[in-house]
Design a protein around this nucleic acid. Sequence first.
DNA 1: GTATGTGCAAACTTTTTGCACTTCG
DNA 2: CGAAGTGCAAAAAGTTTGCACATAC
Lengths: 145, 145
Amino acid sequence: MEISISEIKNKLVEKGLKITPQRIAILEAIYTLNNHPTAEMIMAYIKESHPSIASGTIYKVLDTLVENQLIKRVKTENDVKRFDGLLENHHHLYCSESDVIKDYKNEELDRLLTEYFKKNRIDNFEIEDIKLQINGRTLKRGRKK
Amino acid sequence: MEISISEIKNKLVEKGLKITPQRIAILEAIYTLNNHPTAEMIMAYIKESHPSIASGTIYKVLDTLVENQLIKRVKTENDVKRFDGLLENHHHLYCSESDVIKDYKNEELDRLLTEYFKKNRIDNFEIEDIKLQINGRTLKRGRKK
DNA sequence: GTATGTGCAAACTTTTTGCACTTCG
DNA sequence: CGAAGTGCAAAAAGTTTGCACATAC
């Protein structure tokens, strides 16, 4: 997920957030570590370029970014927070063995789901978005697409 | 989710687990509190009938039950564990406002998904199961189906 | 009787909080 | 300059662990 510092700054400005080195570093970390990182992974990554950042700050910034919809929280069955910098609608492949989460995007699938739920409204529920949790195992060999 | 003590005992026996009052109470709590309870909710519920149960025991029993596939862990974006006593394939409605998780079952939808993934294999990934996270808001009024 | 499960309390991990200080605009 | 953000360290929340005792079979 390639992104430049100035694009990151733009994103912050668009949301009316102040630009700080910590926020830039955290967003950059999430885009670089595109493996749906935990707060801890973000911290470890940033500490190299930015050794004085406090873990409290990381959590506060992450909260701010989620509130302002610059990133999203990922649902997991582990009790640690993980974050996603990809905002477009997409689904997740969960590997039960390795805790790896990968993205899966497909328009046909999304069309299928949209049509289905157009026909089959759910009583007393207003859908905001629908994501697939595709649970399984990543295979060791074979060529990556 | 109606279930009798003897059915609960059967489930434990089938998995080769010893029958203990704590395990029975915890399974019963999960079936009764069918709102995908946290360990804490289970504890609170059980404490009434069973005031001496230890929280460590609750966690240990929950682990055992998950390992033996008598219950499942639910994916959430909160950092607390939640559990599900419904084992058949089903989907979840997540209400972002209230933290309520409801079940959603539909065969047509499952058929649609199965067909889609039969046609569209994912490289280097072996699917075990697919669940929808249907995110949105429960509406206040209207009749419950 | 023996393997297994439970209670308890201490420890651990992850996240949150409050407040003085700093920085952005 | 003032509002907003950060660092720090302490505390909270949630979960795990080890071990002595109790229980199921």
